[in-house]
């Protein structure tokens, strides 16, 4: 029985090799030596986000406590802060890139597990920057039902005016005429586009990725930048669609120095 199986395997191997060699003859130059497969050694990178408040990130940003805005002097008590970070890429010292595929992350301050973005199978080496998109690229806003972080059941998609709510900040404030605030920021086209490319440099430190090891970049995120150019909640306490107000608030947070490197752990 064993010999029959062996014979069968032998025949099969011969057949397959004959067939594949036939194929190869048609497509490949026989003079070219077959390249030896180089095994790329890989490690893991995490981008850890801690949320801060104040001019110099001096206090922790926490849901459910009173925070005073350093510029507007509004007292803000956040019940919700959620936003998208997508298309995460790492720039290597040699100028090449690691790009995460299907890279959509919903950062939710009430879900601790969402505060670290894990990048698997990153080739070993020294990395100088992390690049990412604040918000959700326009393509995914117009391509029908999506999955994972982009699922509509996450409550981050406008049903009546299609597109992602790229940032949701809700809470209460004694400075608001209604006693509360709700900022749902989105918009992916024309003058209302808030989707923003952003990067954080690892400066002289470089993030070194080693084989089968996890290296981490700890970043500080300061949501106070939402009010960099936007008025006090006593003037504006609600945004529910793309437009000038959404653009002003999002630009404050998405384009400025709101996300900074704290430290690296390798």
């Amino acid at each position: 029985m064993k010999t029959i199986i062996l014979k069968f395997i032998a025949v099969a191997v011969v057949l397959v090799s004959v067939m594949t060699s036939c194929n190869k003859d048609k497509t490949e130059d026989p003079e070219t030596p077959s390249p030896t497969p180089t095994v790329v050694e890989k490690g893991t990178v995490t981008i850890d986000l801690s949320h801060k408040w104040g001019f110099s990130n001096e206090t922790d940003f926490v849901l459910g406590i009173d925070l005073i805005h350093p510029m507007k002097h509004d007292t803000l008590n956040f019940t919700k802060l959620k936003y998208y970070i997508s298309n995460v890429k790492l720039k290597k010292a040699d100028g090449t890139w690691f790009t995460q595929t299907e890279s959509y992350h919903l950062i939710d301050l009430s879900e601790v597990s969402s505060l670290a973005i894990t990048l698997n199978d990153v080739p070993v080496g020294d990395y100088t920057d992390v690049y990412f998109t604040m918000g959700v690229d326009s393509t995914r806003n117009v391509s029908g039902a999506q999955a994972g972080a982009l699922a509509t059941s996450n409550g981050m998609f406008w049903s009546w005016n299609s597109g992602y709510i790229m940032l949701k900040a809700e809470g209460t404030s004694i400075n608001s005429t209604s006693g509360s605030f709700a900022f749902h920021l989105g918009g992916f086209s024309g003058v209302n586009n808030i989707v923003t490319e952003k990067y954080v440099q690892f400066a002289g430190n470089n993030l070194t990725v080693t084989k089968n090891h996890t290296s981490s970049a700890f970043l500080q995120v300061n949501p106070g930048w939402l009010w960099h150019s936007a008025p006090s909640v006593s003037v504006l306490n609600t945004v529910h669609m793309p437009g000038t107000d959404a653009k002003t608030m999002a630009d404050g947070f998405f384009t400025n120095n709101s996300i900074t490197l704290d430290h690296i752990v390798e």
Binding site: V142, A145, S153, G155, W160, N161, S162
Partner: peptide
């Protein structure tokens, strides 16, 4: 207001005057 056939049902499903539901509840 709705830009794709697949996301159209979200409008009547979540409108309080229509089916008054949330997507997470539907799921």
């Amino acid at each position: 207001g709705v830009n794709h056939l697949e996301v159209q049902p979200l409008a009547p499903l979540t409108n309080p005057l229509e089916m008054n539901e949330t997507m997470s509840n539907v799921v």
